[in-house]
Design a protein around this nucleic acid. Structure first.
Lengths: 208, 208
DNA sequence: CCTCTGCTGTTATTGCATTCACAGCAGGGC
DNA sequence: GCCCTGCTGTGAATGCAATAACAGCAGAGG
């Protein structure tokens, strides 16, 4: 069953893909699906799909396969996206503003609450209906939103101090766009997004 | 040595990180570095760093460690970023325009050449100095730029047909922002960027 | 009621990536 | 010249994830 930290990391990543496909199936009115079909739509092997799910329990039925609605809801609960989560966004540059306008987050249960910037010029301005706070206000503003996660879309200056302050305020997960290694405080999870690195990987692979 | 497909995928991803740290070291005037120090800066174990490099050859010196400039240049050659590569960008929405303005790509040797959009309203407009072409012009415009890679920042409609056309024009690698499985033509490499999935992963991990 | 089908959940096996451990050696100290 | 230090490169061992294989069973068909 869903015992503690015994879940493979890559299984977690695949859960998102399962959930997305299940949502599509649900929209098209399909009520149940076999592992073969679902795995095919997601792009994994049936064995892997069944193995991934079996880590958390037995959801399938020999005769009908998996109930689409139930499995969709179950994975949502596992991921913690069954209720809306509020994120803090640090950095209102091009990237930050684009993320703020991205509708995909809301669709998946992620709501961007308070936004911050270091630049005095941006503080006080309104972006997509949100007033931009100064970084100094972090301690006074953030508790009102009870954010468990934050997006880092700011410059590289003083990153370690910033992450330490966020950790102190109860932020346990960071989506990091800054191309720099973060020394995360214990208990804080970091996911890096490095587009240049992805391009370099593609460059390497496509060159042989 | 740099034999064919015997390179672990995750080693390729780490090469980018090595290169970035080496660039920083070079900027600060450091000429040589030991595996311990370099690994520490990158955030991996010394053994892993040495193992990764040993796949491609012997670059270190027992007494001085690794020559920063040489190793930086060497990794650049391995990744294929020692010369500028031109990318095509499909989709001029919020995301596409942000990517176009992102300076990090140019710094790493990636130049965005032609940009396209399906929307008639965007065609002909100029974004960051580039005139936006219609998707129908792909076959006539793309050959002038000889792009080996493309960025997909468009909507999900007709993706498979689009990738097939790109493959026909010699595009061998795709950076895909569309949250949908791509059935890549043989020989075409795809890297997916799925921010919602990353958030869901963080949600799962931080909820434990 | 019995057999036959084919799907799930799970165990066994394989493969891959990381870590460990050390041979071998270049240079420094004396 | 000779020993000593501590680093690199790499074979061996370990750990983790993907694949293969199968036990068990719910339902269909007769």
């Amino acid at each position: 069953m869903s015992d503690t930290t015994k879940v493979p990391l890559q299984t977690v990543e695949r859960l998102s893909r399962y959930r997305r496909v299940l949502a599509d199936l649900q929209d098209t009115g399909i009520e149940s699906v076999f592992s073969h079909r679902l795995a095919d739509l997601v792009g994994v092997t049936p064995a892997q799909l069944r193995r991934d799910l079996s880590i958390f329990g037995s959801f399938g039925n020999v005769a009908r396969g998996y109930d689409v609605a139930t499995l969709h809801r179950t994975i949502g609960r596992l991921l913690g996206t069954d209720q809306v989560q509020t994120l803090a966004l640090i950095g209102m540059g091009n990237l930050g503003r684009t993320l703020l306008m991205y509708r995909g987050f809301e669709e998946r249960g992620f709501h961007i609450g308070p936004v911050f910037d270091r630049d005095r010029e941006k503080v006080g301005k309104v972006f997509a209906g949100r007033r931009c706070y100064a970084l100094e206000e972090l301690e006074t503003v953030l508790p009102d939103f009870s954010c468990r996660m934050a997006i880092l879309a700011c410059g590289p200056g003083g990153l370690d101090a910033l992450t330490a302050r966020l950790a102190n305020l109860g932020v346990a997960a960071l989506l990091n766009f800054v191309p720099q290694r973060i020394s995360a405080p214990p208990g804080v999870f970091v996911e890096d997004v490095d587009l240049s690195a992805k391009l370099e990987k593609l460059s390497f692979l496509s060159r042989r």
